[in-house]
């Protein structure tokens, strides 16, 4: 059994090693993008069951953004929603025999955490400007600047560690149990791992929203009527 802590290169593209996680990510990307293209080609005002299901996903993500960030979801929908769907699908890709979840490798989780960190900075600057964003580090007083700066790094690191630890540990435990017991014994653990994967995707997305909302600072009020909301 290969250790999940190790990133073994399947092949190299020049100096660039291509690991199994990267390949799995590409496959997941291809599935999601092709599926999205197929869905968006058949959208209609009278939705089919499939369209209604995906609209339910979008609507749920929008609702979570509104509830968590107290902001209009349109600018953050693609980022937060894609993080959730990618992590969710990546975590659940372990159901396919022989496929190791990309999120079980620290590089993928680090990439996701890095993107959250960048998004926090980006949305914070976009909302308040550079000075305004930097002034949030001096809240509630300038003494807190070092602590707030360290917090912004540590919470990003916590995102990385949380996701990596949960997914990697699940895969690791299932691998150990599978190697020690029979074929069907790890099934409950796999079910638990699926639950953990879904919860971790949700937690990752929620924390990303919280961090972005915190960087934006004062939350913009949500319009009362849908017609006053921003277009998607």
């Amino acid at each position: 059994m290969t250790s999940p802590l190790a990133s073994v290169a399947l092949f190299h593209l020049g100096p660039v090693p291509i690991t199994a996680g990267v390949v799995a990510t590409w496959v997941i990307m291809a599935v999601l993008v092709i599926g999205s293209i197929l869905i968006s080609r058949h959208l209609s005002l009278v939705p089919s069951k499939t369209q209604a299901f995906f609209e339910l996903i979008v609507d749920t993500v929008d609702g979570q953004i509104r509830d968590t960030m107290r902001l209009e979801p349109a600018p953050y929908r693609a980022f937060v929603g894609t993080l959730f769907i990618f992590i969710f699908v990546a975590n659940w890709s372990s159901l396919i025999p022989g496929v190791e979840p990309p999120t079980a490798h620290i590089e993928t989780d680090a990439a996701l955490a890095l993107l959250v960190f960048i998004a926090v900075v980006w949305f914070g600057i976009r909302a308040s400007g550079i000075r305004g964003y930097l002034s949030t580090f001096a809240s509630p007083n300038p003494i807190m600047i070092p602590l707030n700066f360290i917090e912004s790094l540590t919470r990003t690191f916590s995102l990385l560690v949380r996701l990596f630890g949960n997914v990697m540990s699940g895969v690791f435990v299932i691998g150990i149990v599978l190697s020690l017991a029979g074929l069907l014994v790890p099934i409950p653990l796999m079910a638990l791992d699926l639950l953990t994967g879904a919860v971790q995707a949700y937690i990752f997305a929620i924390l990303a929203m919280v961090f972005i909302a915190g960087a934006i600072g004062e939350a913009k009020p949500i319009p009362n009527t849908p017609s006053q909301r921003m277009p998607p």
């Binding site: 993008v33 999205s36 293209i37 869905i39 209609s44 369209q51 693609a78 769907i85 998607p232």
Partner: peptide, 17 residues
Amino acid sequence: LIWLLGRFFWRPVAAMI
């Protein structure tokens, strides 16, 4: 992936809604 899904999934579906 974020750009592609935003382009082909989130925006069209949200626009349809």
